[in-house]
């Protein structure tokens, strides 16, 4: 064997072990984090904790307001972001001509996906809270998060539409279908799995966000269950943030328990997304 070859072989081994070490490092960090959160939080996690309102005493306090707020935020964000995002994706992919304006929009959407979330919070503070006067309401919060996740939904929609082979479009046109009928009856059903996966991932991101909501004013003490989009609210991440800034040990434990709940929600949502993706991949083979 030549010298060159044995050097290549050594390099190969070095990089292999380097890669394995990196992977283990990442997984170990996650395991340590999970262990410390779970060991501290699990004992605190009971029905009383899930259904109680905030309280000055850590042992009486619960995350009910946060859970309800997060569900409201998720629902409203879905209502706003899904139609806007999917429609934009359809327009850009199926209708938009491939010209300068299209590529300009495309670059901007990609950039928007990379904007730090706190910037969206500042934007929301100016536009939704001050100019439009929506206050520190659920509406402001969900509009803010909608802006944040729109790029994710648009990109996911476009990718899923792109994955539908052109032969399906042609088959539909050849049978006398209009463009809209083709999109509605063929393209969307065939790409629904991918779009839904993107939507769920986007919503799970929205549920976990706190920075933009803190900036736009949701960091307030509220012990009232919101019942209207214009109501004040709190969400799980803000509740966690809030408790972590208290000096009492009891609130820190509360925060870890709330983290477990939030992690549970995101895991479940990501699980659904993965399940949908696999199911659709199995169902449709071109």
């Amino acid at each position: 064997m030549s010298k060159r070859n044995s050097i290549n072989r050594i390099n190969d081994q070095v990089f292999k072990w380097f890669g394995i070490a990196c992977t283990i490092f990442g997984l170990a960090m996650l395991a340590i984090f999970l262990y410390s959160v779970l060991s501290e939080g699990i004992p605190r996690l009971d029905w009383q904790f899930l259904t109680s309102l905030p309280s000055r005493k850590p042992e009486n306090a619960g995350i009910f307001v946060g859970i309800v707020g997060s569900l409201w935020i998720m629902g409203l964000t879905a209502l706003i972001a899904i139609p806007l995002g999917v429609a934009s994706g359809i327009y850009l992919e199926e209708y938009g001509k491939k010209n300068m304006i299209a590529s300009f929009i495309e670059i901007n959407i990609t950039n928007l996906a990379g904007v730090p979330s706190i910037i969206y919070g500042l934007l929301a503070l100016e536009i939704f809270v001050r100019v439009l006067g929506f206050g520190k309401s659920l509406l402001t919060g969900s509009l803010t998060l909608s802006l944040l996740v729109l790029p994710i939904i648009i990109v996911a929609t476009r990718e899923s539409l792109k994955a539908v082979p052109n032969t399906i479009r042609e088959a539909s046109y050849a049978l006398g279908a209009t463009k809209w009928q083709t999109i509605l009856y063929q393209i969307l059903p065939a790409s629904a799995g991918g779009i839904m996966t993107g939507v769920i991932l986007a919503l799970s991101r929205a549920v976990g966000e706190s920075a933009p909501l803190i900036v736009s004013g949701a960091l307030i003490y509220t012990s009232v269950i919101p019942s209207h989009p214009m109501d004040d609210f709190s969400v799980l991440p803000i509740q966690i943030f809030n408790w972590l800034s208290r000096p009492q040990k009891g609130f820190i434990v509360n925060a870890t328990a709330a983290i477990i709940v939030l992690l549970g929600i995101t895991f479940i949502m990501n699980g659904i997304a993965i399940y949908l993706r696999n199911r659709w991949q199995k169902k449709i083979k071109w």
């Binding site: 082979p165 032969t167 088959a171 049978l175 006398g176 209009t178 059903p189």
Partner: peptide, 23 residues
């Protein structure tokens, strides 16, 4: 028109045939 590569819709046989009528 019939295309080079068979391109049925990812639907049932029945729905494939009636698609042109449904639209």
């Amino acid at each position: 028109m019939v295309f080079q590569k068979p391109n049925p819709f990812p639907k049932t046989i029945y729905e494939n045939v009636v698609y042109g009528l449904r639209i």
